[in-house]
Design a protein around this nucleic acid. Structure first.
Lengths: 296, 296
DNA sequence: TCGAGCCATAAGCTGCGGTTGTGCCCCTCA
DNA sequence: TGAGGGGCACAACCGCAGCTTATGGCTCGA
C-alpha cells in the first residue's frame, strides 16, 4: 500500500514554496523533507520540484502528481478524522451521536472542517439508528445528534443539515438505462431488488414510500456488497444518493429516475429543546448546514 | 499522515473472512496480519473484528470504519496507478498520451480498472495539451491518446469516451446561488472571473463559447488555487465539471446554470486512422467508454 | 563582500514491522 | 470420543527505512 507521507510533504512544499518551511510545518528537519522528496522522485523517475536557491516550485508533472495526491490525502484525512472520533476519549468535549448514513458519508468531512476551525476540539462519535440517536441526545449522553427524517421527536429542536434521496441504480447496460421517463413507483415495487436485510433504515423507508415490495432477489448486510451485486447486473437496488455518488460519477452504476413517489429524506441535526446549542456543537451544526446548498 | 496499510488488510480480512486468507492474499504471514489488526484496534480503542475459531467478521463499528477506509484506500490506489504510469519504464507495453483534464481526473481510475482486467500490463503516460497529444499518436510515440474535443485531426480515428461540461461555480452564499434561471451567457461574459492564465485549454474554450470575456479578477496557474479563491467568495469561476465534482458534493462550491451557450466538451480517445486498436490499448478505450453512460 | 536563505550530503541511531516457531482453542469428522 | 485441522495470539529475533545533527555549496540582496 502506498505511503501517503511523501505526497503529504510534497503538497506542503508546493503550498509553502520551500522545503524548509514545509519541514517546520510538519515538525521535522529540513533534511528529512529533502530526503523524502528525493526518494519519491527516485521512485517515479521524474523530477517533481524545480529547485532554486530561492525556493521550490512544482514542475508540470509535479503539478499533475500533486493534483492526484491531493484527493488521496484528503480522503486519508477524512478517514483519520472519523477514526479519531471513535477513540473513546474520556475527556472529549463534544459528544456526537449519528445515524449510519450520516456517520458513514457526511461526518468525516465535517470533522475535518471542524478541526480546521476549532483545532484541538476532541470529538467522540457513537453511531446507531435514528431512534437511539434521539434517546442519546435526550438522555444527555450526546451533545448533538444527526438523524434521518422525517420523524423527529417533539422534545428535540432540529435543523435540516442535508438532503438525501433514495436512488434507483442499475448496472450500465441494464434495459432501464435509456428510459426517458424513468420507472414508475408501482413497477419498482413489483421488481425484485437487491436489498438490505429486513429492518434496515433505508429498506423500511422504501417500504413506507412504495407500499409492499416484491421479494428481494438477494439480501445483503452491507451497502458495499449491494453495490457490487448491482454492478454485476444481478438486479437493481435502491440506495442513498450519498452511497452511490462516487459510483455514478465513475459510471460503474447508473441512476434511473423514479416517478410517482417521493424518495427524499432530510438529514437533521437534533438537540434538546429550549437549550440553544453552544460551543463546538453549534459550530459543527453551522458547518454542516453551510454545505446544505450544494447537496443533492 | 495515516498509514493506510492496516486499513487495507482490514478490508481484505473483511472481504475474505479470515486473517489467514488475508495474509496469503497480501503475501505476508498470518502473524503479521494479526499484529496489524491488533495494533489498529489498540489505536482506536475499539474492537473491529469479531474473532471466532471459524473465522472473523466485522463488528458494527468495524463495518463503519471499513466503509470509511474503502474510500481512502481506493483513492490511494488511483494515485498509485497514476504514479506507476509516470515511471518511464523502458519496456512499457502500452504508451498513453493524454491532455491534462483526462490525465488529471479520469485516467487514474481507468488504470486501476485496467490493472484489474489485465494484470501485469505496464503503462506509460505522457501528458500535455491536445494538439501535442495528437502529434504523439501520429508520430507513433503513443499507442493511444485522449484529447478534449471538439476538434480532432482527420488523420486519427476517434471515439467519445466521456463528456465534460464547463461549470460556473460560486461560493455558497453568493447572490447567484438561488437564481431560478441561472445566468445568461452575456452576463457571464461581462463578469470578472477567477481564471487560468491566458492560453489554458479551458480558458480558450470559454472564450470561443462566450466571445470576449471581462478582465479576470485574478489569474492563477492551478485549478486548486482557483477553487480556493472561489470558495473564499473572491469571484465566480468556470471550471470543468470533473474538477469541481467533489466540491459540489461537499457543498464548498455551488454550481450555477448558464443559459444561452453550450459549454459541453467531448473527451475522445484517438488513434491512427485505419489501424484498428488492439490489445491493451483497445481494452483501455473499451473500459473508459463503458463508463460513459454515467458521466455528467 | 558578507550574510541570509535555500537545498544536498554524510554518518549514526532508533524503532517499526516483518519472520519463524509455538501454543491454545474450537469445530468437525471418522 | 478422540484426533486433526483451521484459526488466532504470543514471543524472540532481526533488518531496514527514516529521522536527526552537522556541514558544505550555492545564489541573491544589502
Amino acid at each position: 500500500m502506498v505511503d501517503l507521507g511523501p505526497y503529504d510533504v510534497l503538497l506542503s512544499v508546493a503550498a509553502l514554496g520551500s522545503m524548509g518551511r514545509a519541514a517546520t510545518a510538519h515538525g521535522v528537519s529540513q533534511a528529512a523533507v529533502s530526503a523524502r522528496i528525493r526518494a519519491l522522485e527516485g521512485a517515479l523517475g521524474v523530477t517533481l520540484l524545480e529547485r532554486s536557491p530561492r525556493g521550490t516550485r512544482l514542475t508540470a508533472t509535479g503539478a499533475l502528481v500533486a493534483d492526484w495526491a491531493r484527493v488521496a490525502v484528503d480522503a486519508a484525512e477524512a478517514l483519520e478524522a472519523g477514526v479519531a472520533s471513535l477513540r473513546a476519549e474520556q475527556a472529549s468535549r463534544l459528544r456526537v451521536a449519528a445515524s449510519l448514513t450520516v456517520a458513514e458519508y457526511l461526518l468525516p468531512r465535517w470533522l475535518v472542517a471542524l478541526r480546521a476551525e476549532l483545532p484541538g476540539t476532541s470529538v467522540s462519535l457513537t453511531s446507531h439508528n435514528s431512534t437511539d440517536v434521539a434517546d442519546d441526545v435526550l438522555a444527555g449522553r450526546a451533545d448533538v445528534g444527526f438523524v434521518e427524517g422525517p420523524a423527529v421527536p417533539d422534545e428535540l429542536d432540529a435543523q435540516v443539515v442535508a438532503r438525501d434521496r433514495l436512488t434507483l441504480v442499475v448496472a450500465p447496460g441494464h434495459p432501464w438505462v435509456g428510459r426517458r421517463r424513468g420507472v414508475d413507483a408501482a413497477r419498482l415495487a413489483a421488481t425484485p431488488l437487491v436489498s438490505r436485510e429486513q429492518g434496515s433504515g433505508t429498506r423500511s423507508f422504501l417500504e413506507r414510500a412504495l407500499g409492499e415490495l416484491a421479494e428481494p432477489v438477494l439480501e445483503l448486510s452491507s451497502t458495499t456488497a449491494i453495490k457490487a451485486a448491482v454492478a454485476d447486473d444481478m438486479a437493481p437496488a435502491v440506495l442513498s444518493s450519498l452511497a452511490v455518488a462516487a459510483e455514478l460519477g465513475a459510471g460503474t452504476l447508473v441512476a434511473v429516475p423514479v416517478t410517482g413517489a417521493s424518495l427524499d429524506r432530510r438529514l437533521v441535526a437534533v438537540w434538546p429543546r429550549g437549550r440553544p446549542l453552544a460551543g463546538p456543537a453549534a459550530e459543527l451544526v453551522r458547518l454542516a448546514a453551510r454545505r446544505r446548498e450544494g447537496a443533492t
